[in-house]
């Protein structure tokens, strides 16, 4: 365990060095990420600022939710780069062989060998949005609230990782390239808005089947709408842990089923 942690730091440093070596490429990447997020925020702004209240949420609360959703999302985006291309690079090209002959946990290597550093810029924007909206709402963000948001960020990221890990595992059983990841990835954005705006079926789906609601909506709601959603606080880590354990189990079954490439 200690070795894994010190290696995590080492991987991060090495990878950052490589990324920063291509300075132009990296800068363009950061700028694109920031611009994309700013456009996203602007869209929410344009759509919602004329609507005084939506399903019990007012404009700054919706914006607060949007701001918070950027945090687990950016953490996830930073780590998921290898998951996204796992089928192609690791299974089809057989790079997974290399992972398996090292005395380290296989999932550890997949998650932490590469980072999408530029995604961290979303984290900054998210925090800026949270602070700004809290001021408008007259909501005090003290140390406890920040700690809570940090823990919820980690849980949210774990939920995203769990879902996409399960989808990634499909490539262990099917050699055909399966396009299940992109549509589910697009579903991530559903969690950025109050779940009550969706019909009951979608709400149920986002809560219990693909629990993106537990990554963003429920933690925010239990902070802003304490009277309605207080008890969901306890469910957040529970949902994160159980989905992650399920994903780990599928992963280990997948690794045993891995059949490598011909040569």
């Amino acid at each position: 365990m200690r070795r894994h942690i010190s290696l995590l730091v080492e991987y991060f440093i090495q990878y950052s060095k490589v990324r920063l070596a291509y300075r132009g490429d990296f800068l363009i990447s950061v700028v694109t990420t920031v611009v994309a997020t700013v456009f996203g925020v602007a869209t929410v702004w344009l759509i919602f600022h004329r609507v005084p209240r939506l399903v019990g949420w007012d404009f700054y609360e919706i914006l607060f939710l949007y701001g918070f959703s950027l945090l687990p999302m950016s953490l996830f985006n930073m780590l998921s780069i290898n998951l996204y291309y796992f089928g192609e690079t690791y299974i089809v090209e057989g790079k997974f062989d290399r992972v398996l002959v090292r005395p380290l946990n296989s999932l550890f290597q997949i998650l932490f060998e590469q980072f999408r550093l530029e995604s961290l810029s979303d984290m900054v924007l998210g925090v800026v949005l949270l602070v700004g909206c809290a001021r408008h709402l007259g909501f005090a963000l003290g140390p406890w609230e920040w700690l809570y948001l940090a823990a919820a960020t980690v849980c949210g990221c774990v939920i995203y990782l769990a879902i996409f890990l399960m989808l990634t595992c499909v490539s262990f059983w099917m050699e055909d390239r399966v396009g299940v990841i992109p549509p589910v990835y697009n579903m991530l954005t559903f969690g950025r808005y109050p779940l009550d705006i969706y019909n009951p079926f979608v709400k149920f789906l986002l809560s219990w089947i693909v629990p993106f609601g537990f990554a963003t909506f429920y933690p925010t709601a239990s902070l802003l709408k304490e009277d309605l959603y207080r008890h969901y606080i306890y469910l957040v880590p529970l949902v994160a842990a159980s989905f992650f354990l399920l994903a780990l189990w599928i992963w280990s079954r997948g690794v045993r089923n891995y059949s490598s490439t011909g040569s």
């Binding site: 062989d97 398996l100 002959v101 045993r256 891995y258 059949s259 490598s260 011909g262 040569s263």
Partner: peptide, 13 residues
Amino acid sequence: KSTTIKMLTGILV
């Protein structure tokens, strides 16, 4: 040959 090596190295079950 490679299949044998991959089983010996723990890659394949």
